[in-house]
Design a protein around this nucleic acid. Structure first.
Lengths: 119, 119
DNA sequence: TCTACGTTTCAACGATAGTTGATATGTAGG
DNA sequence: CCTACATATCAACTATCGTTGAAACGTAGA
């Protein structure tokens, strides 16, 4: 991920409705949510949401697929992962002992309570 | 960290000059950089930089201390850690196996090549 | 205390982002 | 087909953000 992509991603996440969309999609898992459901969830008008979804998609944070009359959106976990890595990568430039707590704290999140990391 | 703080932080990082400032400060380590040095590094006018530094400080991403005539800024590693945790926290809601790759990827960053995690 | 230096604040302008309403696309069912 | 439904696109308006220049503040040395 280059700076331009990271900027787009951070800017996308720096907007109330879009941040909620991403969190809702992340929580919803790979199956995703329909645009209409998302509109109700974040309480945003459909046309407005469409604008934000396009921006999130362009930022590589979400993906979409059509399913009948609905368009299903889901979180782009790879994109989120890249963004986190981009943010944390430079913390290691000569001072790994400084950023280690951040990594350790993340490693202590609920994700590690499962056996997913050992799969 | 609540949503309002996370929004401020993401919005702050979604701006070219501010993102570069944060990365420069993160790379510089705890000793930080003077405002003037930062202005040269990111190629931004001093008064303009001051505006961005204030915003980053308000977002909890950087801290400052006066040192003689200079004001030294440094990255707020705790704030960055909180932000990463906020972004990744919800990935665990019922689907830990999905977000695990993101955590694993981050854990593979250079931070872990040192012995900082085992200190 | 006077001057020089580094940094910050302020007001104003131009550019950009977000919302809204109307309209268009695309899809399923009668 | 034609209608109903879900979503996307477009133009216009408003508000907010980022930049600039001038000026103020705080600090150190002569």
């Amino acid at each position: 991920m280059d700076e331009r992509q990271a900027l787009a991603a951070f800017a996308a996440l720096g907007q109330e409705h879009r941040l909620r969309v991403v969190r809702a999609l992340v929580a919803a898992g790979p199956e995703g949510l329909a645009a209409g459901v998302l509109a109700e969830t974040v309480n945003v008008a459909g046309n407005n949401l469409s604008f934000h979804l396009k921006e999130l998609s362009h930022a590589g944070l979400i993906t979409s697929r059509r399913e009948g009359k609905s368009v299903i959106y889901s979180a782009a976990y790879a994109g989120l992962s890249d963004l986190v890595q981009f943010l944390m990568r430079d913390c290691c430039q000569g001072h790994p002992e400084v950023c280690a707590p951040a990594v350790a704290a993340l490693a202590a999140c609920d994700c590690t309570t499962g056996d997913a990391l050992h799969a």
